[in-house]
């Protein structure tokens, strides 16, 4: 299969290409003229191609933000769709520069896999979806003993599922596929009773099913799934650029800088806004990071601030209609918090 081929290719790349990843990623990216960004093979709201073939979603927009920070142009990005299995090898081997693919941050991935997660762009949790028409009496995940559960292989979801049923002393039979589209098809065809993945994903998948209204997402959230972008270990400069791109998105929302008013805001009297937008005299914030001083202006002009990005891709402006919840800024009772840009 294709995936094995990529696995072997990845292994071979690790073996053969000595210098690809060793030089500074920023220099490589500038030399080739675009950011190579790893995304999912299609998850509504996070990274999925639209009817014109352009990648849309929170994860895809984050890649554009990185491109805007580096080049001042959000279109200088190329997307590589990756399955759950391929994603880490692709990053390790230097095939992609950023992995922005609804990937859960765990200690194992941060250490043994040689990755560095830059932050949490979406706080998620694992949930269950069932067909309420076929299973009328079920309204809690604790009633699922004996069910056949569809899940994508090689994910933290698969591990949480095993733990959850074991802890609650329930039986289940896993139905496991490698591609999300195969899991969708099996669930839609009735091969399994339950679909489990990150709750945001369930809402997205529900829209693609035959009759979305028949399916309900059960209330239980069984795990913490902090989803965020990751880069390779061993290149602090690139790590900082990607990390502060994320923080800049949050800071812009906190300061009320939007896609529409970013030009006006440049002339603001507020010293903090001036500093963030690189309007302070002799500022070195951007150049110290390795990008231009108007990097935040470029980011916000391209994708807006974090709040705008969220509402456009998964929130009220999207078919998913997910509430901000814990993804609100810390000032509004959420978890999104940026260290000061100064």
């Amino acid at each position: 299969m294709k995936h094995i081929a990529i696995g072997i290719l990845g292994a071979a790349t690790l073996g053969l290409v000595a210098s690809a990843a060793s030089a500074a990623t920023l220099d490589d990216v500038k030399a080739k003229g675009f950011v190579q960004c790893g995304v999912s093979t299609g998850l509504a709201g996070f990274s999925a191609p639209d009817d014109k073939g352009d990648w849309q979603g929170l994860d895809a927009d984050f890649c554009r933000a990185v491109a805007a920070a580096v080049f001042g142009d959000g279109t200088k990005v190329k997307f590589t769709p990756l399955s759950a299995k391929e994603r880490f090898t692709a990053l390790q081997s230097g095939e992609i520069d950023v992995l922005s693919r609804n990937t859960t941050w765990t200690i194992n991935r941060d250490t043994a896999l040689g990755l560095n997660f830059v932050g949490v762009t979406y706080y998620d949790g694992q949930g269950f979806m069932i067909n309420a028409k076929k299973l009328p009496g079920v309204n809690s995940a604790l009633q699922l003993s004996g069910a056949a559960v569809c899940v994508q292989s090689g994910t933290t979801t698969e591990l949480n599922l095993a733990d959850y049923f074991k802890t609650n002393k329930m039986e289940y039979s896993p139905v496991v596929f490698e591609q999300l589209s195969e899991v969708d098809a099996a669930y839609d065809a009735g091969r399994c009773d339950v679909y489990t993945t990150d709750q945001s994903g369930l809402y997205g998948i529900r829209l693609t099913l035959g009759s979305p209204a028949d399916h309900v997402v059960l209330p239980e959230i069984i795990s913490k799934e902090p989803l965020g972008p990751a880069v390779r270990q061993g290149d602090d400069q690139w790590y900082h650029i990607v990390k502060w791109t994320y923080f800049a998105l949050l800071q812009a929302e906190e300061l009320g800088i939007t896609k529409a008013n970013v030009e006006e805001m440049k002339a603001s009297d507020n010293p903090e806004i001036k500093r963030v937008l690189g309007q302070e005299a002799d500022t070195k914030i951007g150049t110290d990071l390795g990008v231009s001083n108007d990097w935040v202006v470029n980011i916000v002009k391209t994708v807006g601030n974090y709040g705008e990005m969220f509402e456009r891709t998964v929130g009220s402006g999207s078919p998913l209609k997910i509430a901000r919840g814990i993804n609100a800024l810390w000032t509004k009772g959420g978890l999104q918090y940026s260290p000061p840009i100064r």
Partner: peptide
Amino acid sequence: GYPDLTATTGTVLNQTGQAI
């Protein structure tokens, strides 16, 4: 999705990241 050698080893590969 039949768990043969390729499938289970693939899952192990992804959970551990030990590709080679």
